[in-house]
Amino acid sequence: MPDRDPVERPFALVVALVALAAWVGGDFFMHEVLSEIAILSIFAMSLSLLVGQVGMVSMGHAAFFATGAYATAALTIHLQWQVLPALLAATLIAALLAALTGLFAIRTRGIFFIMITLAIGQMVHAYLFKARAFGADDGMGGIPRMDLAWIGLDSNEPEVFSASVLIIAAIVWFLLRILVRSPYGAMLLAIHHNEHRLRALGGFVAHFKLLAFVIAGTIAGLAGSLTAQHTAFVSPDLGFWTVSGEVLIMVIVGGMGSLTGAIAGAAVLTLLRHTLSDSSFWQNLGLDSGLASYWQFMMGVFFIVMVVFATDGIHGRLRRLWQSIKG
């Protein structure tokens, strides 16, 4: 809609500068974390489109993430494909799965949409957990990274890989931003606010929702393919429903309806997890280093606090700050 959001662009600029600074000044470990954050950002942005823009709260989004990852693994290992074509094919496979499942899911609303997407996600997880062709519960390892030799780079170097995924994340941000600001984006927002009225006006509500579901699934598949390359390993855990829940929390923490917020949310949650599960962090605080093994407890409390008290997330806070400065 016509520039509803004065904060998004400066916010994105700040996030981009922070990412750049972290990459330039980062060590081996920082580059690994940056790669992880960039990949999760892509994943979170895809869900942000669905949840923030259209109001479709999916608890099964990890299904497409896992599909992208497994397709990349299977194509490169079983069929010895090159990574780049495998990445494209994996994204396409995730898109197909999203289209197929979306056809059913978009017919439901509210809590029933949550439940049916949960079922879809668990269906994929349950299949991968048992499928011998894909290593069942052991998963698959030894997935190569994209070949960047043609521009004289080695993607196995952490700084090269992290730069690549950061650039891909930036491209995804730009593309989604164009989409959100387009007439189609306005239709998605209209569905969020009053689906019934848009239908009464004659909007193609079902088409718009399905398309959004497929776009989100496709981008989640892309993120999945990248994570398979990053860790060189896939396991059914990638598709477990708690992964969908955590990505949803990233979207909430960042601020619903903001793409940059999704990136910030991914960064906050990833850094928080690394910090809380690091025993030296607790030692430095003068506490028992054993607390590190209870990081899930602290993350859980953090989730609850964020959902209860900070519903509009980082982006919402920034926006309110902006409004109070303005007047």
Partner: peptide, 26 residues
């Protein structure tokens, strides 16, 4: 949370799952 939408209920009780697992572990 009763007045909130289903998403808040799902996510808060989702957080409780993690708290619960680590609490019994402790």
């Amino acid at each position: 949370l009763q007045s909130r939408g289903p998403m808040s209920q799902v996510l808060v009780t989702f957080g409780l799952i993690f708290v619960g697992i680590d609490a019994v572990r402790m």
